[in-house]
Each structure stands twice: as structure tokens, then as C-alpha cells.
């Protein structure tokens, strides 16, 4: 065992990158759930985003266009969920599970001729002198643009929910859709927009895996990240900053346990592999012991009976 092979600076730097797919997907799902919709199709939207972004990036040579394509791919798939749950008033749990299964199959079909292809690489953002700060520069300011866009989305979601009228209306719809309808708010329209936003975020999260983390295309490559993002939203008590904390915690411990495996620590690999899940859940469960609770209309079907 040789712990000295672990470089703490590189470890911390890798944490931000490792956490980004979960962070994007969970932030999108947070908005969806605050609007009162439970979309269990995150995994499906991520994998479709991963292949859609991969195809666009390979064919255009631009990773940036790839991420836009990934957002569009995730959003288009989420339209299917919109149709099922907001138009046909189908059960949200069943529809979400169906969306994940459908997304896994669809992505495999789309990606058939892309196995083994290398995507264009996304350059790290040049932050000039900031990147040259010792230690901090390497940890915080030497990443690709998507890491920062992810953080901006969290900031935007937090501020939007807390300070804007649109955010207030969205929370009201999620809290009590009958009352929001009685006040004259368009429950279905607001929920549709929230679901599309969630789909776009999940799609970008998926593309971060296929374009930057791995970078290649293999079937089922999101490997359950969407489910972790879903759990993260609940354990984070539907609060954006706690989602960020949970995503970083999860990403950090994932990196740490990989490093520990590399260093040959005398703990069975299975324990190391399960450690990110256990630690993240414990910390967020402790945090969620306050009064916060789920949005009142979460998962309930809205039917305007008036």
C-alpha cells in the first residue's frame, strides 16, 4: 500500500469534473419535482442525451454544439413524458420507468455505428491568471466550460426559485396544483416547461459522460447515474445547494475510492465501491432531518375538474 501516489490536488480537481453529470441531472430533476412532477426517466434522458450529444459532436467536430444537441435530445425525449403524464394523464411512476427503458433501447439503436469512434475533445476553459494561482488554480480554475455551466445552472435555479415570480409560481404549482389552478395559473404549461428543462439538463449530464469523462460511446454507459441523481434530489430535501453538496460529496468519494484502489489499500474493492453511496446518503439524511418536506402535489395527476 502506498498512499503517497495519491495527489490531493489532482484528487480535488477531479472531484468537480466527476460530480458534473450527477449535478446537472439532479438540478434538472429538482426543478421538475418542485413543479410537482416525479419523472423517473432521468436515466433514459441522460443516455439519450449522451448519444445525441456524441453524434452531433462527432459530425460537427464541435463539443459545444454536441452539448446543445444533448440538451435538445434529452428535452425531446422528455416530451414523450409530457404527452403521457400531462396530456394522457398516465401514472407518473410507470411513465418514468417506461421512459428510462425506452431511452436505453433508443440510445443503443442510435449509437450502433458510433462504437469505437473518438469524439472531439473539449478544451479546458482559459481563465488566464486565475488558473496560475498555486493549488487553488489547479483545483478550481482549470476545468472545461461545462463544469462552470453546471455551477451556473445551480445558482440560477436557486435564485430563480427564491427570488423570481416565475419561481414562486412554479413552487406554488408543485405545492398545491388545485389552488394554483383556482388562482388562474396554467398548471400543465408550467409543468411542461419544467419537464423540458429537466430533460435538457439530464441530456447535458449524459453528454458530459460520453464526451468528457469517458470519452467514447458504449451502450448503457450512464450506468445508473440517473438513479443516483434522483435519489440525490430527495436526500437533498429539494434544495439546490444541498444537491451541489451531495453531488460533490459523491464525486469526491468516487474519486477517492478509485485512488485508494490504485494505491492497493487492504480493503476489499466492493467496500470501496459502495462507499460513495453510503457516505452521501448518510450525510444527506442527517441534513434532511429539518422540517423540509416534499412538494405537496409531487407525483399527483392534475385534472382540471372545473
Amino acid at each position: 500500500m502506498d498512499l503517497s501516489v495519491i495527489n490531493p490536488i489532482l484528487l480535488l480537481a477531479a472531484l468537480m469534473s466527476a460530480a458534473t453529470p450527477i449535478l446537472l441531472a439532479a438540478t434538472g430533476e429538482l426543478v421538475v419535482e418542485r413543479a410537482g412532477v416525479l419523472n423517473l426517466g432521468v436515466e433514459g434522458m441522460m443516455i439519450v442525451g449522451a448519444i445525441a450529444g456524441f453524434i452531433v459532436a462527432v459530425n460537427t467536430g464541435s463539443p459545444a454544439l454536441g452539448f446543445i444537441g444533448a440538451a435538445a435530445g434529452g428535452a425531446v425525449l422528455s416530451l414523450l413524458f409530457v404527452f403521457l403524464t400531462q396530456v394522457a394523464l398516465a401514472n407518473q411512476v410507470a411513465s418514468g420507468l417506461g421512459l428510462t427503458l425506452f431511452g436505453l433501447g433508443l440510445s443503443a439503436l442510435m449509437g450502433q455505428s458510433y462504437v469505437g469512434v473518438k469524439p472531439p475533445r473539449m478544451a479546458d476553459l482559459d481563465l488566464g491568471p486565475l488558473s496560475d494561482i498555486p493549488v487553488l488554480g489547479r483545483i478550481l480554475f482549470s476545468h472545461d466550460a461545462m463544469v462552470y455551466i453546471g455551477l451556473l445552472i445551480v445558482l440560477g435555479v436557486w435564485a430563480g426559485l427564491k427570488f423570481t415570480r416565475a419561481g414562486l409560481v412554479l413552487r406554488a404549482v408543485g405545492e398545491n396544483h388545485d389552488a394554483a389552478h383556482a388562482l388562474g395559473y396554467k398548471v400543465k404549461r408550467i409543468r411542461t416547461l419544467a419537464i423540458l428543462f429537466g430533460g435538457a439538463c439530464a441530456g447535458m449530464g449524459g453528454a458530459y459522460i460520453s464526451l468528457i469523462r469517458v470519452p467514447q460511446w458504449t451502450e448503457g454507459m450512464t450506468a445508473g447515474v440517473g438513479w443516483i441523481a434522483l435519489a440525490l434530489v430527495v436526500f437533498a430535501s429539494w434544495k439546490p445547494w444541498r444537491v451541489l453538496l451531495g453531488a460533490y460529496l459523491f464525486g469526491g468519494i468516487t474519486q477517492l475510492q478509485l485512488n485508494l484502489q490504485g494505491a492497493g489499500v487492504a480493503i476489499p474493492v466492493e467496500y470501496l465501491a459502495m462507499s460513495p453511496y453510503i457516505v452521501t446518503i448518510i450525510v444527506l439524511v442527517i441534513l434532511s432531518a429539518d422540517k423540509s418536506r416534499a412538494p405537496g402535489s409531487l407525483g399527483r395527476i392534475f385534472h382540471a375538474s372545473h
Binding site: 415570480r165 414562486l168 409560481v169 413552487r171 406554488a172 405545492e175 398545491n176 388545485d178 389552488a179 394554483a180 383556482a182 388562482l183 395559473y185 418536506r293 412538494p295 405537496g296
Partner: peptide, 23 residues
């Protein structure tokens, strides 16, 4: 309303803002 059209998890001021056109 007879059955209150209020939102339990929001504050008094937020509830009132939701019922106004130009809050």
C-alpha cells in the same frame, strides 16, 4: 374560497403575491 386556495409550504406574503396581478 370555501376550501382555502392556499399553499402550506409558502409564506403569507408569497401566498398573497400569487393572488395578485402585479405583485
Amino acid at each position: 374560497f370555501q376550501h382555502f386556495s392556499l399553499f402550506d409550504a409558502l409564506t403569507v406574503a408569497e401566498n398573497i403575491a400569487l393572488g395578485m396581478e402585479n405583485a
